Amino acid sequence: MSLKNLGLAALFSLATLPALAQTQTLRIGVTPGPHAQILEAVKPLAAQKGLDIKIVEFSDYVVPNEALSSGELEANSFQHQPYLDNQKETRGYKIETVTQTVNFPIGIYSKKHKSFDALPNGASIAIPNDPTNGGRALLLLQDKGVIKLKDGVGFKPTILDVTENTKKLKFTEIDAAQAPRVLDDVDAAVINTNYATQAGLDPVKDALTRENPKGPYVNIIAVRAADKDKPWVKTLVEAYRSPEVKKFVEEKFKGAVLASW
């Protein structure tokens, strides 16, 4: 074969290599704290497989799905399935789950009381103001026996669905990210684990009580529906759900965050 033909053959071989043979950049949206820290542990493993992960942090739960839907991100890793389902229902996003990641059992925290049973009648309780996490807080309080909710409310009850409130708890709805900041002003607050750890709280030691970790609130990686079957998605999932990342989660968070694999 001539040198010219050899050159053409080499070029053809390069052109037909799988997409991940060349480094591909993925912008992945997360909230600060554990989600970002876990993705930092994923980065070197993904790099070995041809993925260059750029971590993009958001301070709330609303913008990451909007950014993903509009093409500013390739994926996000910050939410559980009930929250995504609600976002798709209310905003029409064409976003799909590609894998489960970790669970952050939501907890009730207090600076004024040492135990959940010590909460007084008429206690002020701060809960997240978004439909999914607010409902999650109310379901936890129902599990603890201090309120009852209407039958059939599913995963998104509101304070209007409270049918019994034996301790006459007073609810204040706030942005989930602000919950740690109001602990001085309320008897207790229901706080998502990522915001608790970001504020220096230890979910295992400091929470008065936590939800059942085997519930429906395992977090997920989401991508646009059009990207769901692209090769990089499988590669990203394999890097995330690796033994190395599971070991990192166990050693770093010591039970505050639980791997789903």
Rank of each mutant, 00 (worst) to 15 (best):
P180L: 04
E40F: 06
I191D: 05
T163G: 11
D85R: 13
I53H: 08
G255H: 00
H113F: 12
Y240H: 05
L26M: 07
G135C: 01
K247G: 09
G107Y: 07
Y240R: 01
Q142R: 12
D184I: 02
N65K: 12
A226S: 13
Q100K: 15
G200K: 12
V146F: 00
D187M: 10
V162D: 04
T163P: 00
L139M: 15
S260F: 12
N5L: 15
V257F: 10
D187F: 06
A176P: 03
S69D: 12
G135V: 01
Y217D: 10
A47V: 00
K254V: 11
V162Q: 10
Y61R: 04
S59E: 15
V42W: 05
T31E: 08
V223R: 08
V30S: 09
E96N: 07
R241M: 12
S2Y: 02
I95Q: 05
G71D: 04
I106C: 03
T235V: 14
K150A: 13
T166D: 10
V257P: 02
F155E: 03
L51E: 08
V249R: 02
V146I: 14
L8N: 13
T172H: 13
A259T: 12
L138D: 00
T193F: 07
G29I: 06
F116R: 11
F155S: 02
V249W: 07
L139V: 07
K144Y: 01
D151A: 12
L14G: 05
T101F: 09
N65M: 14
P243M: 00
L39M: 15
L208E: 01
Q24K: 14
R91G: 08
I108D: 01
I55K: 10
T209C: 14
A177R: 01
L3Q: 15
A10M: 11
L6R: 14
Q24W: 06
A239P: 06
S70C: 09
F12M: 13
N103K: 13
G154A: 10
L8W: 08
F12C: 13
V186C: 08
G122I: 04
S13P: 05
Q22P: 03
A21N: 05
Q24E: 14
S124N: 10
I55W: 00
K214G: 11
G145N: 05
F12K: 15
P32I: 02
T172Y: 15
G215K: 03
L236A: 03
T193H: 03
G50V: 06
A118V: 01
K167S: 05
G255D: 00
L201E: 06
E173W: 01
D85S: 14
P120D: 11
K43G: 10
T132V: 13
E164Y: 02
D130V: 11
L149C: 08
H35M: 07
G215C: 09
A21L: 01
F104K: 01
L183A: 03
E66F: 02
Q22K: 12
K170Q: 15
N129A: 07
A67I: 09
A9M: 13
V223H: 00
T25I: 09
S13K: 12
L26P: 04
F248E: 10
F171P: 07
I95R: 05
P213G: 11
P157R: 04
V98G: 02
G50N: 05
Q37M: 14
I174Q: 14
G71R: 04
A189V: 08
L119K: 04
P203V: 09
H113Q: 04
P120I: 06
A222N: 13
M1V: 09
R210V: 13
N76K: 08
